[in-house]
Write a protein that binds this DNA or RNA. Structure first.
Length: 488
RNA sequence: GGCCCGAUGGCGGAGUGGUGACGCGCCGGACUGCAAAUCCGUUUACGCCGGUUCGAUUCCGGCUCGGGCCUCCA
């Protein structure tokens, strides 16, 4: 019997070719990944966070496969307009006006909120966070380098002529011509798809964020930022560029066009010409009541789930149960299901930990086939849903060495990122925001109930249990914790 | 109008040309004073109509329904 000695090759879906491709790093043994991060003009909603859970699993998988990972996530704090007609307001400027704060304060506040969510979801820190406003000089330089051959100037700014690069829009699979004329046109644009590289501050106005440039005072275009930051930090071409599936239509095709111009290449027949070899996009988290849209006003924040008593890692598990390229249906019921599963996993691992003791161990041959299947699943375009089932199978194995089992579980959790080796049941018991009862009161009532039970006064003990239930506390005699919050 | 995607059991969600993943729920059992928690076991599916095939949920065509993008969004 030959154990599979060689690791399963990593296969990833490349949006540019719309096909699964074996991962071949640009630099041997390395993986350089750039992920489109948030525009920090508002809180992220849980759908936004799915993109970072996805990017995190990708990064963890690359690490698991032995690649030296360099991951960069950007923070956009300027230039992202409220619409794509190059005529809208800057999102940052608008929120600053609404909240009567400086744009810098807005950026800082929402950046911190985003980072809090990143931590709560056990998303690993990237090698570098790039902040757009830190790269303005480089953006100007980038723009200058492509201006002559690929851009033209209008009163409102410097525009990129999409006809100057081959295969514009191939990523989106969109026709470049026609157009229903449904978006507001900017006077003078040569092609509907042309986009702003530099937006001039209108005469007589002053923006909170503006810089000098050869085209006058103004701000960089949104698409320019990602081309500049990814190229600066990772170098063209780098391995993988990730983002939400919505970016596949506009933002990334524009980024690719800029990269083609910058690299002085033309056609996209050679993947390197797009700046990144592989473009990956996660699908949306959807909610039946409508799309998860910020502009619709209300949206689900991670903090809301926490306030209701759902541990954030239950949301991460919910994401992992589905493939990143599939739409995922959000519901409270589904989130509750994930929390229940997470609790059981955590309890199972805790038992293994107890029996394993302190001894370090490595998984023996008994675990080989399982770990192979785990790796095969994760290597198959990140099939976390199947990988999870392998984890569960290993957890359920009887009569195996606890230390070895723990080591096997640890290897898998390093990819899943659920923190299963450090979490305990108590940590998952989040206090819902709405409840008034204190834990001291709960303990007191539980003590009284214990006495009643000892005295076989079941009427009283049941009454006390009902009393707790009415306040959102569920009594569980056979559970190590003894009680838990009831979720609405 | 244009481009694209999907349709799997109560819910979510994998996957496959032929032995019906998995999770949660339900049901049964163990445990419990009774419950809950936990553990064990069990149940239900592949939108409709054709075609290819020895055989299709899986491939092809049509239909119906749903969704996304084309306008800010991960």
């Amino acid at each position: 019997m030959t154990e599979t000695p060689s690791a399963t090759p990593l296969t990833l879906y490349n949006s540019l070719t719309r096909s699964l491709e074996p991962f071949v790093p640009v630099h041997s043994g390395e993986a350089r990944v750039y992920s489109c991060g948030p525009t920090v003009y508002n809180y992220p909603h849980i759908g936004n966070m799915r993109a970072y859970v996805f990017a995190d699993v990708l990064g963890r998988t690359l690490s698991f496969k032995g690649y030296k990972l360099t991951h960069v996530i950007n923070i956009t704090d300027v230039g992202h307009l409220t619409d794509d007609a190059d005529a809208g307001e800057d999102k940052m400027e608008r929120m600053a006006a609404v909240q009567k704060q400086s744009i810098w304060d807005i950026a800082e506040h929402y950046k911190q909120a985003y980072w809090a969510d990143i931590r709560a979801l056990n998303i690993r820190q990237p090698a570098q966070w790039t902040i757009a406003t830190d790269y303005v000089p480089q953006m100007v330089a980038f723009a200058q380098s492509i201006a002559e051959k690929h851009c033209y100037e209008l009163d409102s700014g410097l525009y990129f002529d999409v006809s100057t690069v081959a295969d514009y829009g191939r990523l989106a699979r969109a026709a470049t011509e026609e157009g229903e004329g449904r978006i507001e046109q900017v006077d003078g644009k040569r092609h509907q798809a042309d986009f702003a590289i530099w937006r001039k501050t209108p005469a007589g106005e002053t923006r909170q964020m503006e810089w000098d440039s050869p085209w006058g005072r103004g701000a960089p275009g949104w698409h320019l930022e990602c081309s500049v930051m990814s190229g600066e930090v990772l170098g063209f071409p780098f391995d993988i560029h990730t983002g939400g599936i919505d970016h596949r239509e506009i933002h990334h095709p524009n980024e690719i066009a800029q990269n083609q111009a910058r690299c002085c290449t033309n056609g996209l027949d050679v993947a390197e010409n797009s700046g990144a070899k592989v473009w990956m996009h996660n699908n949306f988290l959807v909610e039946r009541s409508g799309k998860m849209s910020k502009s619709s006003g209300e949206f689900l924040r991670l903090q809301l789930l926490i306030d209701k008593g759902y541990h954030p890692l239950a949301y991460r598990l919910m994401c992992l149960q589905a493939h990143y390229r599939s739409e995922l249906e959000f519901s409270w019921e589904g989130l509750g299901a994930a929390l229940t599963r997470l609790k059981r996993m955590v309890m199972g691992v805790a038992q293994v930990r107890e029996r394993a003791g302190e001894a370090e161990a490595v998984p023996g041959p008994r675990f080989g086939p399982f770990l192979d299947r785990f790796e095969a699943a994760i290597s198959d375009d990140l099939n976390t849903a199947v990988a999870l089932t392998v984890f569960d199978e290993v957890l359920a194995l009887k009569k195996v060495d606890a230390g070895e089992k723990l080591a096997a579980l640890a290897q898998m959790d390093a990819v899943l990122g659920l923190g299963l080796l450090t979490l305990d049941r108590g940590t998952l018991r989040l206090r819902p925001k709405g409840v008034a009862i204190t834990e001291g009161e709960i303990e007191a009532t539980l003590a009284a109930r214990k006495e009643a039970r000892a005295a076989k006064d079941f009427a009283r003990s049941d009454a006390l249990r009902d009393e707790l239930a009415a306040q959102g506390v569920e009594v569980m005699d056979g559970d190590p914790l003894g009680w838990d919050w009831k979720l609405g």
